[in-house]
Amino acid sequence: MWRALASNALTILVVGLFLIGGLILWGQSQYKSEGPLETAMCLQVKSGSNMTRVSQQLEDEGAISSAMIFRMGADYTDKAQQLKAGSFLVREGASMAQIIDDITSSGASTCGSEIEYRVGVTRVQTRVRELNPATLEFVEIASFEAGEEETPAEYAEKRQDADTRYRVSVAEGVTSWQVVEALKGIDALTGEVSEVPAEGMLAPDSYELAPGDDRATVLQDMQAKQQLRINAVWESRQDDLPISSPEEMLILASIIEKETGVPHERGQVASVFVNRLEKGMKLQTDPTVIYGVTKGQGVLGRGLRRSELRRATPWNTYVIDGLPPTPIANPGLASLEAAVAPEETNFVFFVADGTGGHAFAETLDEHNRNVAKWREIEAERNSSSN
């Protein structure tokens, strides 16, 4: 009898262990396999929340199949106490394991609201945007330009939201003075800027910010990135170029940047200036004359006067030989690359062609014909606008 009871108990124990093992394997499979979410969503984890609340929220939203398995997985991986506050993108089909990794790792929000400060050549614009989880695209909900008396209510609202992300985007061709002035106007930043960084030494790019970041530190990050680009591009330069140092490369790249915004033209524009330098011709480029007038402090806002084209300044390439003494703006990576790898052409002239690009020429006669065409286009535009 006792033997029978012992045998039955052992059988029950074995079956129980087998069932438990199967349950564990099933739970692990549920935890790691693709989840039920059909459309990406933005999960907001409020400060002071916990895994129990988050797991129930995810189950209610249809992002996970079981809040209990989610919590058990967080406990098993020792992540239950690592929950971060923020707004997190949960992609369609995300597994419980992926979601837990996202909400317990860096704490940086991956969806929700973003405030972007765009530093352009002619204006500084602030945009308030919201990520649409379904399309993974930002939707603008408000914008305003620096200097406006009133800012949108949405901006003030998002500035109070701890989950809001911040970034500053610097366009190619802005001057260092323009960047510094723009940073001074960003109320999310702190600290003073003791001096304007050297012209050309700030990398045009997009930079993540955090409220309270120091302005000088942001500028240091921009300088460090530009220096890395300069070093890498200089190492890749073509042989026999008429520039002898990274500093000259930076100056040439800044001129290329200011002369064209058409990506496929950069190599041709670079070839014109390289050919002129090799022939001992003056560069004769208007952006350098403008820099001699403004020193990079703002936009000229009008055409150049004849007297300014004749006036001797260190940057007036109608007067001086060779390159000016400093860059005239902060060039982007593509212009740096064009400066050391120009296209092989015989072009020594170019002029606007009316389409946003330029007409290039090898001879003065050809160039004069292109100039005449451009003046006809200008005249037609002026007459139609009157």
Score class of each variant (00 low, 15 high):
244 S>D: 15
2 W>P: 00
367 H>R: 00
193 V>Y: 11
78 D>Q: 07
152 P>E: 08
219 L>N: 08
100 I>S: 02
73 G>V: 12
228 L>I: 06
337 E>K: 13
213 D>C: 00
125 Q>R: 14
94 A>Y: 01
7 S>L: 15
173 G>Q: 00
60 D>L: 05
277 L>P: 12
241 L>G: 07
317 T>E: 04
281 M>Y: 15
381 R>D: 07
63 A>D: 12
241 L>K: 06
100 I>K: 00
257 E>W: 10
83 L>N: 06
48 G>A: 12
69 I>K: 07
279 K>F: 01
161 D>N: 14
259 E>R: 01
55 S>R: 03
353 D>G: 14
270 A>M: 12
310 R>E: 15
239 D>W: 03
311 R>G: 01
263 P>L: 08
345 T>G: 07
362 E>I: 02
57 Q>T: 13
250 L>A: 01
31 Y>K: 07
277 L>G: 09
72 M>R: 05
225 K>I: 08
30 Q>E: 13
13 L>P: 04
293 V>M: 10
37 L>N: 05
123 R>P: 08
119 V>K: 02
162 A>P: 09
176 S>G: 04
322 G>L: 08
329 A>Q: 07
71 R>N: 12
145 E>R: 10
158 K>H: 08
160 Q>F: 05
351 V>L: 07
161 D>M: 06
276 R>W: 07
121 V>D: 03
347 F>S: 05
213 D>F: 04
283 L>M: 11
381 R>M: 09
264 H>V: 11
153 A>K: 15
35 G>N: 06
294 T>G: 11
38 E>C: 02
302 R>M: 13
196 V>L: 11
60 D>F: 12
115 I>S: 01
24 I>C: 05
189 L>C: 08
310 R>S: 13
209 L>R: 10
345 T>Q: 04
115 I>W: 03
207 Y>A: 04
33 S>F: 02
341 A>P: 05
89 L>M: 14
367 H>K: 01
19 L>A: 14
176 S>C: 08
114 E>D: 03
54 V>E: 07
159 R>K: 15
146 A>L: 12
235 E>K: 10
384 S>F: 07
314 P>Y: 05
307 S>H: 02
201 M>G: 04
74 A>N: 03
247 E>R: 00
328 I>L: 10
313 T>E: 06
364 L>W: 04
228 L>W: 00
112 G>Y: 02
4 A>M: 06
280 G>K: 06
117 Y>G: 01
180 V>W: 11
50 N>E: 05
332 G>L: 06
79 K>I: 00
274 V>K: 02
65 S>T: 12
356 G>N: 09
188 A>C: 12
52 T>Q: 11
134 A>P: 05
90 V>M: 09
182 A>G: 02
336 L>F: 09
301 G>L: 13
204 P>I: 01
10 L>P: 01
57 Q>L: 09
330 N>Q: 06
65 S>W: 03
120 G>V: 09
245 S>A: 11
97 A>F: 02
43 L>K: 02
63 A>L: 12
145 E>K: 11
338 A>H: 09
241 L>H: 05
29 S>H: 14
282 K>S: 03
333 L>H: 06
69 I>N: 09
250 L>S: 01
385 S>G: 04
46 K>G: 06
175 T>E: 08
126 T>D: 08
